[in-house]
Write a protein that binds this DNA or RNA. Structure first.
Lengths: 161, 161
DNA sequence: TCATGTAGGTTGCGAATCACTACTTATCCT
DNA sequence: AGGATAAGTAGTGATTCGCAACCTACATGA
């Protein structure tokens, strides 16, 4: 299978491109969401999302390839394949929730199920950027810094790529 | 032009689907990232990302449609079009950073520019989910709650988020 | 003023991907 | 064995992507 299209990755040393390489295709995030909601089996994903079977098969395979889901056949019934989130997959939760909160806020809101802290049943905070000591940061309070600058704190250079 | 493919949205009252409707296509996030980095013009996006011109035109138009970018012609030179982030677009920053941090962490890491707090030049925290009072929440501490449940609770204690 | 350059697109076309439906394979149940 | 079920594959159009060439409005400057 020769890909003609180039990896997004090569244009940037940026993790965003790598993330999109793994999760950027249509349906990937919806599948992930379903997985977070406890769905485990092919037919469950298929009927929940209404996605075409071949596409679903492709996406699941890709997510497994990228280590986001793990594929196991059940011992009790070897027809049944379990797709389970790995640690890497679970670590996508903040990104997914951030995206979802944005959608709720700006696109006709009113999302039915809401994430709550199971301790007190209160909704979680909006995802935000925070300084090392926990202050919430605004866009104006941020800048890009290159790795070299972090290492050599003595000098200051002025650029953001 | 009739779209045969259905909106992701219809399958879920979920903001995630709406968000993907606006940002889920290839290149959209990379364009957004470039916009956050100060790029404003068609040719700048094109040469920075190496994206095909027609695709870029389509994406920019779509992002404008969705109110994520704003398109303005400069008075000083009316050939020049400025694409600027709107408030809605800027509000995608947490989601983008979360995605990027995930990519940095799990996919061959080492992302060159890093976001820092401009006040003390220290890198920002990893994006995480937090309870209403600021505790960082683990996946095990979360559950989904439906709107009706929240309303029922609200009957005794008068509040809605 | 008219040639020339520039910014921001559009068009045409082949390749790749998506989506819908039907078919297949392996396994379980009785 | 016969039928049902889970998880895919295969075939077929429609849609989108990616590349290069082309187009148009505006700006510049000799």
């Amino acid at each position: 299978m020769g890909k003609l299209r180039e990896d997004l990755r090569q244009y940037e040393g940026c993790g965003l491109a790598s993330a999109l390489e793994a999760m950027g295709e249509r349906w990937s995030f919806m599948i992930l969401r379903a997985a977070f909601n406890g769905l485990k089996h092919f037919e469950e994903f298929q009927s929940e999302l209404g996605i075409a079977r071949n596409i679903l098969a492709g996406r699941l395979a890709r997510l497994v390839e990228h280590g986001i889901l793990e594929r196991t056949a059940l011992d009790s019934d070897r027809r049944k394949i379990v797709y389970a989130l790995t640690a890497k997959g679970m670590d996508l939760l903040p990104a997914m929730v951030a995206l979802r909160q944005w959608g709720d806020k700006w696109c006709q809101g009113a999302s039915t199920p809401v994430l709550v802290d199971s301790r007190d049943e209160r909704p979680i905070r909006p995802v935000a950027l925070q300084s090392h000591d926990g202050r919430t940061l605004d866009l104006a309070e941020l800048r890009w810094k290159h790795a070299e600058e972090l290492l050599e704190l003595g000098r200051s250079s002025e650029n953001a790529a």
